[in-house]
Every structure is written in structure tokens, then in C-alpha cells.
Amino acid sequence: MTEPVLATRDLTKSFGALKASDGISIDLRPGEIHAIIGPNGAGKSTLIHQICGGLRPDSGTVHLLGRDVTAEGIAARARLGLGRTFQISALAMEDSVLQNAMLGALGHSGRPWRFWRPALRDPDLRARAEDSLHRVGLADHMHKRTANLSHGQRRQLEVAVALTLDPKAFIMDEPMAGLGAEGSALLTRFLDELRAQAPILLVEHDMDAVFALADRISVLVYGRVIATGTVDEIRASAEVREAYLGEEA
């Protein structure tokens, strides 16, 4: 089997008596979309935080491209190739759409210590930012103030900023949240193609999108991965039906 791009090994994290992560081992292989599903409170956000570096696990490790990054912070992991989108948009609302994308391009360049030439006149930064905005369909809105974007457009911008980083792996925390049917369908098609560029770890509540996109699904319940498998395997699993899908099936 090919080396996973991203892997967690026995991640454990407790908050008091609550085990939010209980020995989680998952991996993300090249070219795949690996979806994490689970009921509210299953520990999906805690897992994402530990993968991205915002939260240190009590025990266990996170490996990115074969390298142990458990001790690294958010910024270091981003530089190594993690591209993350947030469940609740984390964008500079006072700035323009283009400026938000340029921030990503600036992070990718790794050269923020420049003080004289206006950022917007830097052709390399600008090209990278505009290219990403084109790809998500925001090119016509790039000079708008981000606060004036619709909810769906902010979700698109989240993805665009991650694209500017040219990451080795995408971590997407509910990218479909709050999108209408049409928006979800558009984004689903986009992510479908994006996996060829870099694999995607996708936390998502929208089951239509998950079943349409995922190569593999891991089901998280009470901090434990109770099953990992293909869409058909997960659909067929009695344990998963009982623990999670059962409510809806």
C-alpha cells in the first residue's frame, strides 16, 4: 500500500472525565477523500484540532508525509502542507476577498517580512490569489469586502484560501455547512476533482455529499473509530446503523 499522506496513531485526548479522542488511528492516502462522520459530540472537532496543531493530544502521534509533527504548532504544520478550512468561516471580514486570498498566497511564499511594495502589486502573490479565486468561482467578487459576501461565498473563499497554500493534504471541517442544495452540489463537484491535486480529510454532516464523494468513511462515536470502510461497507455495517445511521434509516 502507498504511504499515507497524513496519519494519526492512537490519538487520545481527555477533557476531565470525557474521552474526546480514544485511541484514534486514521490515515489519509494519496488521491482519496476520507470522510469522518459521527453524531454531534463524537469528537470530530477535537480530532481536527489535534491534526491541525491547535490541540496537543494526551498521547499518540500525528504524522504528515511520514514526519512526526505531534510537537509542531498550527503554523509549522501549515508550512509542511496542511490546508485547512474552518467550520465557521475564519476570514478577515474588513478586508477584500482578494486580500484574504493574498494572505494565503503570502503564507505560501513564506516571506511576510517585506515592508515597502504594496502587497496587491506583487505579481506572484496576486497571480496565485486570483487563480484560486477563479477556481472556486469568486473571481467576479474579488474586490468586495468579505463581510458583504453571502454565506455560501464565504465558504467558497475558505476553500480558495486553502488552495493558495497548494497543500499536500486538505482538512475540511464541514465545508457544506449552511449551503443550499445547489451550493452543495457545486462544491461536491469541485471537491470530486480536487482530490486529484491532494487528498481530502472531510468532516461533513451532509450524508448525500459524503456518500457521493468519499473513497473511505470512518465513523466516530464517543471518541472512538467504530468502523472504517468504503461507502458500501459502512452502509452495510450493522454496528454503524445502530450507532449512527440507525436514527435516520
Binding site: C52, G54, G73, I74, A75, A76, A78, R79, R84, F86, A90, L91, A92, M93, E94, D95, Q99, N100, M102, L103, G104, L106, G107, H108, S109, G110, R111, P112, W113, R114, F115, W116, R117, P118, A119, L120, D122, L125, V161, T164, L165
Partner: peptide, 28 residues
């Protein structure tokens, strides 16, 4: 004025509004 519009200013301006975003693109 130059500083505010420079790459440094762009990043600093974002660090004021959403520090976590700045970290997520790999800057401190």
C-alpha cells in the same frame, strides 16, 4: 502608509482580525 499596504501590513491586519487564520496559512 507603505507598511500598512505591504505584505507585512496585510498579514498584520489579518492577525488583528483573525489570528487563527494567519496561523493556518503558516505565519506567526
Amino acid at each position: 502608509d507603505r507598511l500598512a499596504r505591504s505584505p507585512f501590513g496585510l498579514a498584520l491586519n489579518a492577525a488583528r482580525q483573525v489570528p487563527v487564520r494567519v496561523e493556518t496559512v503558516g505565519l506567526s
